[in-house]
Amino acid sequence: MSGAARPRVSVVVFPGSNCDHDAVHAVEATIDADARLVWHAGTDLGRPDLVVLPGGFSYGDYLRCGALARFSPVMDAVREFAEKGGAVLGICNGFQVLCEAGLLPGALLLNSGQRFRCEDVFVRVESTRTPFTSFLGKGDVLRLPIAHGDGNWRAEAAAFEEVKANDQVVFRYCDVRGDSTPEANPNGSLDDVAGVCNRGRNVVGLMPHPERASEALLGNDAGARIFRSFAATLLGLKSA
């Protein structure tokens, strides 16, 4: 039985990533992962079960957030891994990189309020059909921290219709009761979208930082549910 094997997690480090060590710590603490950092210039992801593109400011956010990281050598390996169905989680800047790389739909614009927002928000689970939400309930409300200046997710009208039709909206901003209101949306994103997945459902990106809210010691462990969901999904896959 391989069910007891520790999940292998590779966290990509771009020049300017700054949540990479937090991501490693979070998956070690929450799902006892065998986690490693992979420098962006490398091309060997190391046979992971999960690839995390962490938050930060890759390439100083030059040109557009995530636009230059997309051309890092490691991204060819990430693309290949994702296309084979490998689980990829993009957090904040990692979400921006995945959108720029075309692995996720849409793009992230400057926050509508033009300010960097660093605070806790609430998100509602909109789809449980991803490895990161399959053990959560649809409609569950998670309190998670955000820290971004460019989180205003957009897609062209036709593309967004497809996203909705394919159940690719994974998280939406909401208030503590789970209701979406203009005040609950910190960045003006289209239809309160906080996170989306690809058509294959194995690649997920979100603006909030689950890795910063993964332990009771930090005052909030809601983010741990996302990592635990992945571990449980993986176990299910392995024992299936």
């Binding site: 636009a67 959108c99 793009a107 614009l109």
Partner: peptide, 8 residues
Amino acid sequence: KLLCNPVI
């Protein structure tokens, strides 16, 4: 290829 993101 790089300078413009056609989505936005």
